[in-house]
């Protein structure tokens, strides 16, 4: 018999691990990935693979040669960053830009702070915003969806629905198309339906809680609703706003990233509302047609403050007897 182990209680551990959570998120990403493969064809597959593989390689290189610590590339977090980064770019983006984006996401967004769990900003969004600012033309030229295409270069491009809204509202696709994903846009953001499916999976598996997505989407809906009621002729209705652009992707996957969101339920609600309001402000009055990434990054910066200010309700704090 080996020596008896002595340790503090508890002596049980739940069947949970970082890896399980991360692969759970990956499973929930499958529907949205399939939709993007369907509408953007080979280009989408190549961009996604490039992003994932380069994220893994950069994480490996940094852990092996710069940090010289344990290699944890298979915990799934780098894969998620890769997939989410790919979700945020058009399918015809030159591959070297994807690689640069991955490097920024993993290198600057995550590893500089100490790796998984220490990064204040969502790595995929850091990479995305870096690319958006560095390569504005390529990042905002979206191919039109064409089911199962194998063409990569010279695809027919077209503006997103949000861009349409600002110059020619009559060519906006139907809501049904937009909901399913038949519209121009970044890889992963097009299909609200697939994203919601993934979100429900994560809710059931208790990877995320409802607070952030619901408060995010609801605050976008309410805010744009007010603007729309004030002047229906100049503004789009709230339903349009929540099913276009990156709202669904942002609310379900980006804002709920555990590492960069608040931990107490109340804080999560504040965070979601903040993201929603900032998104709408940027969309309606900012220079960019889309503001989800900026809104989430800005709110990420507030997380430590929110965590400090909104503690969970303690047992025995307020006494209500009866």
């Amino acid at each position: 018999m080996s020596l008896l182990t002595v340790s503090g209680s508890p002596h049980f551990h739940a069947d949970s691990s970082v890896r399980k959570i991360m692969y759970g998120v990956l499973i929930s990403l499958i529907p949205a990935t399939l939709v993007s493969f369907y509408y953007f064809g080979l280009g989408a597959i190549i961009v996604t693979l490039t992003a994932v593989v380069s994220c893994l390689i950069f994480e490996f290189l940094i852990q092996k040669y710069m940090i010289k610590g344990p290699i944890t590339i298979w915990d799934g977090s780098a894969i998620i960053t890769g997939v989410l980064l790919a979700f945020n770019v058009p399918s015809n983006l030159p591959l070297w830009m994807v690689v640069v984006g991955s490097f920024v996401a993993i290198g600057m967004g995550k590893m500089t702070f100490g790796g998984l769990g220490k990064n204040p900003f969502n790595p995929a969004l850091v990479g995305r915003v870096f690319m958006l600012i560095s390569f504005p033309v390529e990042m905002t030229t979206w191919p039109k969806p064409e089911p199962l295409t194998t063409q990569i270069a010279d695809v027919v491009t077209g503006p997103t629905a949000l861009a349409f809204a600002s110059f020619s509202p009559e060519s906006i696709p139907s809501y049904q198309d937009m909901f399913i994903g038949n519209m121009a846009g970044s890889l992963g953001e097009i299909s609200a339906l697939a994203l919601i499916l993934g979100g429900i999976y994560m809710l059931v598996k208790r990877i995320i809680t409802w607070h952030i997505p619901v408060s995010f989407i609801a605050s976008v809906f309410v805010f744009t609703g007010i603007v729309w009621l004030v002047d229906p002729s100049a503004n789009m209705d709230p339903v349009f706003h929540i099913i276009t652009g990156g709202i669904m992707l942002g609310a379900i996957y980006m804002a709920t990233d555990m590492v960069t969101s608040p931990m107490a339920p109340k804080g999560m609600l504040i965070f979601g509302v903040g993201c929603g309001v900032l998104t709408v402000v940027i969309r309606l009055w900012g220079a960019y047609p889309e503001g989800v990434s900026f809104a989430i990054l800005i709110m990420n910066a507030f997380v430590p403050l929110i965590d400090r200010g909104f503690k969970p309700k303690r047992f025995g704090e307020e006494v209500k007897n009866g």
């Binding site: 020596l3 182990t5 002595v6 340790s7 503090g8």
Partner: peptide, 8 residues
């Protein structure tokens, strides 16, 4: 050692 320690 007669026991093995695990933990913090």
């Amino acid at each position: 050692p007669k026991t093995r320690f695990q933990g913090l």
